[in-house]
């Protein structure tokens, strides 16, 4: 394998420090076989600058912590192999989310807020009976719910969305997908009007301008285009009945 020298240009800013100003810093690093940006960034922190802030948890592409702009594209850093990138790599924090420092952004708070606003939990009046057999469900329905539930809340679809970048309250593709997850779930007893109340607005599905950047950016291939269309159809119908 060729031993490239990588030039990694990293956005630096500490919003906690009133004297700090946003800037880009360049770190050079010897590429290694099988190197991911997780490995590269940790090497930089341990060997060159221990103040560098970024977020990794699972380092396996499943927890959604490490979304950032890699040469302009929002994606997961932990599962980006450096060999797929040119010698010059620019890393920026995801836009839209509150910046905590350098590459670290507060996706957690953003997604919690969306979940609360869309009331993303099963709404039911039935009590739980610990003695009873579980309610039946077809395996197809279970898989359909899981398909939407897979979202890891990484924020890549949000960071790359034109609407989300200008409208702070837009719930984005991830938010709409979250609502779709409950719409297909027979255990949730909300009717269409109840869903309309949480997504049937300009901050919800009707704010989406349909350019589908989100669909391209989702690192785990959630079919966002289909999910947006599904919710738009349902909500348009519900809107008529108002």
């Amino acid at each position: 394998m060729s031993q490239r020298e990588l030039a990694i240009h990293i956005f630096r800013y500490n919003p906690e420090d009133p004297n700090d100003e946003p800037k880009t810093e360049t770190f050079t690093l010897q590429e290694e076989e099988g190197m991911t940006l997780f490995i590269a960034l940790n090497k930089i922190r341990e060997e060159q600058d221990p103040t560098l802030k970024f977020d990794f948890v699972c380092r396996a592409g499943i927890c959604g912590s490490c979304g950032m702009l890699i040469n302009g594209k929002p994606t997961l850093a932990c599962k980006t192999l450096t060999k797929t990138l040119p010698d010059d790599i620019t890393l920026m924090p995801l836009p839209v989310f509150k910046l905590l420092g350098d590459l670290s952004v507060d996706t957690g708070t953003w997604f919690r807020d969306i979940s609360l606003r869309t009331e993303s939990w099963i709404h039911t009046d039935k009590p739980f009976d610990p003695e009873a057999e579980e309610e039946r469900m077809s395996n197809e329905t279970a898989l359909q719910i899981y398909e939407a539930e897979r979202c890891i809340e990484c924020g890549c679809c949000i960071g790359g969305c034109a609407t989300a970048n200008i409208k702070p309250d837009f719930i984005g593709a991830a938010g709409v997908n979250r609502v779709a997850r409950f719409m297909v779930d027979p255990r949730d007893e909300r009717d269409e009007q109840a869903y309309f109340d949480v997504v049937g607005s300009e901050d919800g599905i009707f704010g989406c301008i349909g350019l589908m950047a989100c669909d391209d950016n989702c690192p785990i291939d959630i079919p966002l285009q289909g999910q947006l269309a599904y919710v738009r159809r349902k909500m348009a119908a519900a809107g008529w009945k108002r």
Partner: peptide
Amino acid sequence: PIAVRQMAYWGVPWNRVK
């Protein structure tokens, strides 16, 4: 078993017998 069923009640889409 109660724990698994309660998680189903709360929303886990467990795979089902086909």
